[in-house]
Every structure is written in C-alpha cells, then in structure tokens.
Design a protein around this nucleic acid. Structure first.
Length: 274
DNA sequence: CGTAGACCCTGCGCGC
DNA sequence: TGCGCGCAGGGTCTAC
C-alpha cells in the first residue's frame, strides 16, 4: 500500500533486522507479477549471500547483498513485504518466500500483482531500464521551485499530472499529489504554463513537507506491518483532502471535491486552491 | 514531441 | 442475502 513514505518506512524497519542475515532458500510462485518472476536469476543473486544494506530509489526497495548483487522489490499497488517466523501461517498471493539462515522468512505478497521482483548486479542499477528514466528524489535536497519551473518550461497540462510524472520527480503518488497541492494552495487542474516562480517554490516545499510528515507518522503504524502483524491504520495518517469528497475543508469548510486526472481521483478544495 | 487513456489484476464496499 | 459495479496507494504502452 505504498507511496514513497510507506516504502521508506518499510525500509527503515527492515534495516533494523535484515543486515547481516543470509539468504538460504527461495520459493517462487509460477504466477507472473508485472513481469514474469525469473526464479533462476533471483536464486543466482541471492542464495548463500548475506545482506549488507537496504536502500530506496523512487518506490523501489533495494536490498544490497555481498558479492555485488542487489535484490529489487517494488510493491505496486497491493504489495506487502514481511519478515516473519518460518512457522507463520501462509497467506494467499504469497509470490516469493525467502528463507533466511536465522529461520525467519522474508515474504512478498501481492494480490493484484502490479509489483515487481528482480535481481541484478549492484553496479548495473543506474543503467537498468526500470531506473534509467527516473527523475530526482524529492527528499534529497534537489527539489526546488527553480527545478520545477525549469522542468515545466514548454510543457502544458494540469499540474497534478506533472507532479506525478516520475521522469521529473519520483515518489509523489496519487495521495500525496493531492495533499501537496492543497498545502501549496494550487488547484490540481491549473496548467503548468500558468504557475509563477513563487508558487513553484511553495509546491516544492509542500511536497517535502507532506512526504516528510507521512514518514514521521507512518513510523509507528507501518512497523506492525513490517513485523507481519497485519495492516493497520494507513489512513490514520491525517490527510487534508485525499478521500474526503463532500467533507468540509479543514481550513475553510468548503466541501472537498473529487475529479479525475488521467483516470486517477484527485481531491481538492475549490476555495483554498486556485 | 507531449499528453490522455487503456490496461495489467484481485478484493472490497456499496447500493439495489 | 447475493450480486454487479465502481473503485483502489503504480507504472507502462499505445494512440492521438
């Protein structure tokens, strides 16, 4: 159930328990994820190897292993990655089950199968076709109003779609796009050609605020998920507009509206956002 | 060239 | 109660 904050919270929780552990076995489902699972490749890169570190790029979780290999997991829409005892009951849609030398298992479950799992040499990640076109990280200090204004030059279309274009900035998904635009006071349908420099500054700051806050708040709720205790209150993270169609804007009381951009729901306040 | 829409897949909640 | 419909947090491909 991931946007960038959820993947980051997952990374932080696994980072406390996985490094130093060794992969000793792997069971793989025959069903295809977004791409077919290449069992032989996964085994070649993981079995017998110890985990060195966990990183994140966009919404991809990167598990670096000794010997120069990296295991890459993308959770798609419905993916869950959990570290559980070997005796933990199996659930439907578990597509990958890594056995660790400790007796624990790292399990990847993904009912909708929009997720992804593959492995490759660590030094080939940047040039891999799934990473090559990715834009900047939103929380690495590169996201500024100047950058957004520059990227928007010569473009058109609604700012909401622009913000979700991973070739520009990664990690801003459907929830936090709505949230950031609300915080910046920008109407989601506004053309990128009609946004001035000051408002780009506001938007760049809003994206970082919203994502940073979600990571801080998600820390407690999603630790349970990583520990395999099931999903909990994702929606306990306080959202200003997302999913609140018809409910009053917390700032001015105007009912929150919903409309579609490229088939995805967008929520906004028509009074606070212009 | 950029942008909009379809599509991949399963599950859940709602209204009838 | 049972069933069909719309919708769901992502990403990529095709058609315009």
């Amino acid at each position: 159930m991931p946007e960038l904050p959820e993947v980051e919270v997952l990374r932080l929780s696994l980072e406390r328990r996985l490094p130093g552990q060794r992969f000793v076995g792997l069971s793989v489902s025959k069903l295809s994820l977004r791409e077919p699972i290449r069992a032989a490749e996964l085994k070649k890169h993981t079995l017998g190897r110890r985990i060195l570190a966990l990183r994140r790029r966009a919404k991809y979780l990167l598990i670096d292993l000794e010997g120069g290999s990296t295991l890459v997991i993308h959770l798609g829409m419905s993916g869950r990655l959990t570290l559980v005892p070997a005796a933990a009951p199996r659930e439907a849609h578990e597509h990958l089950r890594f056995e660790l030398a400790s007796g624990e298992q790292l399990r990847f479950r993904d009912p909708r199968r929009f997720g992804l799992a593959f492995a490759l040499p660590t030094d080939e990640i940047e040039e891999d076709r799934r990473f090559r076109h990715l834009g900047i990280e939103p929380l690495a200090g590169e996201l500024t109003g100047a950058f957004l204004a520059e990227q928007a030059r010569g473009r058109r279309g609604p700012v909401k779609s622009f913000l979700m274009d991973g070739r520009i900035v990664v990690g801003v998904g459907n929830i936090y796009a709505s949230e950031a635009l609300f915080l910046a006071g920008i109407h989601p349908n506004r053309s990128v050609a009609k946004i001035g420099r000051e408002r780009w500054d506001k938007l760049a700051a809003a994206v970082q605020t919203v994502l940073g806050r979600a990571i801080a708040q998600g820390g407690t709720t999603l630790n349970d998920f990583a520990d395999g205790e099931g999903k909990t209150g994702y929606f306990q993270v306080s959202l200003a507009v997302y999913g609140r169609e018809g409910e009053p804007c917390r700032s001015c009381g105007t009912p929150i509206r919903r409309r579609l951009h490229a088939g995805r729901s967008t929520f906004y306040c028509s009074t606070c956002q212009r």
